[in-house]
Structures are given as C-alpha cells and as structure tokens.
Simulated scan of single mutants.
Amino acid sequence: MSAQRACSVSELEQDTPLRVELDGIAISIVKDSDDEIHAIGDRCTHGDISLSEGFVEGKTLECWAHGSAFSLETGHPLNLPAYEPVPVFVVEIDGDDVLIDPTVTKEV
C-alpha cells in the first residue's frame, strides 16, 4: 500500500492532536511546538483510551485518563502505567497534504 492523505497541514493546530482513521487504523497526528508533524497510534496501550484527547508537551503526547506520556518520535511510553509502545508512522508532506501509509511504521 502507499501513503494516503490523512489531513492538510493547515488543519493542524500546534500542540493539538488530530484523530484520523486510515484503513480502519486510528492515528493521532500532532504538529509539535517546533512545527514538526508526527503520527502515532491513537490508542493508549494501558487503557485503550484515545490519545488524541490527550495533552501535547514538547515531543510527548500524554493520555488524559491515567497520565502515561508517549514519545511522538519513538512511540515508547515515558512513564507508567503504560509499558507497551504505540506504533509511529512515517509522515510525508506534499504541498499542504499530510500523507501517511497506515501499513508502514517507523523503525525505532
């Protein structure tokens, strides 16, 4: 499969996650405070909570329910109670389009 349009760059607000679904996979897209765009799996591995409802700080996305923070770059949890990582997807920018292939995750 190839990358598909997930949203436009102009739809993204800084430090505000946007939930999208591509081929049945929920993905949280974040433009961080450095204007870098990240895409990680939207489900917290601890409580099956939508991460796009969480809080962005620096290069992390924190689950609102139990406070586990995940690295936007690696998907690894940075604190308990989560101990399993979430997938991180490759992001491509084409003009104003954010492209993601939901079948390909980053090697971290």
Rank of each mutant, 00 (worst) to 15 (best):
P81K: 08
P85Y: 03
G54V: 05
I27N: 01
V56E: 09
L18Q: 15
I27W: 02
F55S: 09
G54I: 04
F89D: 08
D34E: 12
G24L: 01
D42T: 08
R5V: 15
A69V: 05
G41E: 01
E13F: 06
H38V: 11
D48L: 14
P77A: 06
L22M: 07
I25D: 07
Q4V: 13
P17F: 03
C7H: 04
G41V: 02
G54S: 06
E21L: 04
A39V: 03
L78V: 03
R5Q: 15
F89Y: 14
G41Q: 00
V88G: 00
A82F: 07
P77W: 03
H76M: 13
L72H: 04
S52T: 03
I49T: 11
T74W: 04
V56R: 00
F70K: 03
K59W: 05
T45R: 08
S33Y: 13
G41L: 03
C63Q: 00
I37V: 11
E57I: 15
A3E: 08
S33M: 12
D34I: 01
S10I: 06
L22S: 12
T16F: 03
I37K: 07
Q14E: 15
E73L: 08
F89N: 11
S10L: 06
R19C: 13
V30R: 04
L61Q: 07
S50D: 13
D42A: 11
E57G: 14
V88H: 01
N79W: 07
D34G: 05
G67L: 09
L78Y: 02
T45E: 02
Q4P: 08
